[in-house]
Simulated assay, not measured.
Amino acid sequence: MDWRKGEESQNVEVDQGGGGRGFGGGRMSLGGLLILALLGWVFFKNPLALLQQGGGQPGAYAPTSQPVQVDPQQKEFVSRVLGSTERTWTDIFAGMGRSYVDPKLHLFSGGVNTACGAASTAVGPFYCPGDEKVYLDLNFFRELQTRFHSSGDFARAYVIAHEVGHHVQNQLGIFAKSSQLQRQGMPMEGADGLSVRQELQADCFAGVWANRTQQRLQWLHPGDVESALNAASQIGDDTLQREARGTVVPDSFTHGTSAQRVKWFKTGLESGDIQACNTFAGAL
């Protein structure tokens, strides 16, 4: 992947360390509660428990002990991938007569405080609608290679594009719609739940980004798409549960099966059209 062809973003932040309140003393917004249900995708723990690690109580500190040291090349990679998403989604939104607001991407190590709560590295990459930021510990890229056997640059770019896909959902009002459906009784977890539908749509949006960006930059090499598809297949609920538990429990699915994740990424990749990404209608 010739990732240096991508435009550099000015929206990458590097955590400078220090503490702060995670949940605070008040109630979380619906958006904050919604995103908590999407976290914990690697370790299958209660997201509230993940966010409370370190103090064990809402409002606990989750400090980063020192400023994050980021390899300049890694930061440039993240910046150029993020910049490519900004260009792609700005163009798509303009075609719909709308304005796209760029998200921030916050690099951290160990733990971080967000508008959705305090999170540890164990949560994995995530998006917080409360502050419209993507959060990424670059150590996850090492885990992507060692645990999930996905080492290509495009596999790493897919991870970023997936999280940006959640920002796109937020911009389009899909998070608000999901909150409404949840209040009406639609379950969050489960093979047919809201969380799975949101995650698969973010995979599809990542595929749309891949299609549009490739048309514009011609930056992919043979095998790059396969590396992203492999990454998608390695992080399906069924694959991760089988690895962690030895059994598969569809009622606890939050992200979709490996086959579904590959299917919806390919749907976006082949169509380049967000209209093809309606995971809320019909079977998955």
Score class of each variant (00 low, 15 high):
160 I>A: 02
142 R>N: 10
211 N>K: 02
231 A>C: 11
29 S>K: 10
48 L>Q: 08
23 F>T: 08
192 D>C: 00
239 T>V: 15
41 W>R: 10
46 N>R: 12
251 D>K: 15
133 K>Y: 08
258 S>L: 13
13 E>N: 08
37 A>I: 03
116 C>I: 03
214 Q>K: 00
70 V>W: 09
94 A>S: 12
44 F>S: 10
148 F>N: 04
272 G>Q: 08
5 K>T: 08
176 A>S: 10
259 A>M: 10
181 L>W: 15
259 A>C: 10
188 M>P: 00
170 N>S: 14
51 L>M: 12
79 S>C: 09
62 A>P: 00
196 V>H: 00
246 G>K: 15
188 M>Y: 10
110 G>L: 06
154 F>G: 05
5 K>H: 09
1 M>F: 14
137 D>W: 04
238 D>T: 07
200 L>N: 03
1 M>R: 10
100 Y>R: 07
199 E>H: 02
96 M>K: 07
52 Q>N: 08
201 Q>W: 01
88 T>L: 10
220 L>Y: 07
98 R>P: 02
267 T>H: 01
215 Q>A: 12
46 N>A: 11
267 T>A: 11
262 V>F: 03
24 G>D: 14
125 P>V: 01
157 A>F: 02
182 Q>C: 00
9 S>V: 04
139 N>Y: 08
108 F>K: 03
277 C>K: 05
46 N>K: 09
211 N>A: 04
200 L>P: 00
203 D>P: 01
142 R>V: 09
153 D>H: 08
45 K>M: 11
176 A>M: 04
185 G>S: 01
143 E>T: 12
65 S>H: 04
204 C>R: 05
256 G>K: 10
119 A>T: 14
235 I>L: 15
97 G>W: 05
120 S>W: 08
39 L>W: 00
4 R>C: 09
84 S>T: 14
143 E>Q: 13
245 R>M: 15
227 S>A: 14
250 P>H: 14
271 S>W: 13
186 M>N: 00
268 G>T: 07
233 S>Y: 14
42 V>Q: 13
51 L>F: 13
171 Q>A: 14
140 F>S: 14
36 L>N: 07
151 S>C: 11
238 D>G: 02
208 V>S: 06
168 V>T: 05
55 G>T: 05
208 V>T: 05
130 G>S: 06
131 D>R: 09
224 D>P: 04
78 V>D: 01
108 F>A: 06
26 G>Y: 05
102 D>F: 00
283 A>R: 12
200 L>W: 00
178 S>K: 00
234 Q>G: 04
35 I>T: 14
90 T>L: 03
245 R>T: 15
258 S>F: 05
266 K>W: 13
157 A>L: 11
61 Y>W: 00
54 G>P: 01
212 R>N: 05
156 R>I: 02
276 A>Q: 11
234 Q>L: 12
36 L>Q: 10
7 E>K: 13
213 T>W: 07
127 Y>N: 06
271 S>E: 07
101 V>G: 06
249 V>S: 15
